[in-house]
Amino acid sequence: MLFNRDKGKRPQEVSIRLDGLDTLESRIRKLEAAADDQRAALAALDPLGDRLIELRMRQERAEERARTLETAVADTRRVLDEQSEVLDLVRVTQVAERDDLTREDFLVHYELAQRLRALYTQRMPDLIQPRLTAERPRDVVRRQAQLISRLCVVLFGPDEQGGLGEPDLAELARIATDAGVVGLDARHQRLLERVGTEAAHLFRAMTGSGHAGHFDFAVEPGTPVDSEEHALWPSCEAGRPVAFVVCPGYRAAGRRLLETFVYTEATG
């Protein structure tokens, strides 16, 4: 207990306490000075704080813009995807609707054209040979071409009927045998049947293909031979005008698949 202690020590204690107060006062002044420094520093930081706030606001605005842009990009992408799908559909439709493109179902016409060429240049000359031998014409090339021209008309129809009439097999036999005057041996008799059958097959295949076919008999006599449109009948002379059509050209869906075989008169 303080009052019970030795009274002689009190002045010393008071002095110590007063010294303590002085020290405290000095510390307070230092702290106040430090606080002033801090306040000064904080005052210097005020503009940066504003800048920070501004930056925060700008960041928020930028984020907002980015969100808007992202939405716009997503929307644009969606629109682009939709447009791409539409474009694909348009392109697919465009491909589907083009009638100048060759599709698988048309390819048969190339084969038919080759068979037709074989009929013209191989089978028909062979079929007409017995009659030519019997007739012994002075101009055998011309006569052969004339007879084959008549065969083509009866097999593939005249041009005024669109060139796709039913093959007239009776007339075919009449021309080949000169109305029965010329006898055919067994091989040529079979050839006659085969030519008739092949013409009938070709007629059915051409008319049943779904693509409009057409035999082209129309070349005016005197027309210059056009190598892109016409083929010279074997043994005919080049550089001469067309005398008559031997075998018709063949077209399907507007495309020329076989040239028109034409006869040209020899010079002299």
Partner: peptide, 10 residues
Amino acid sequence: LDPVRIEVPV
């Protein structure tokens, strides 16, 4: 069955 005919160019 048939012979083959080939045209000889002039």
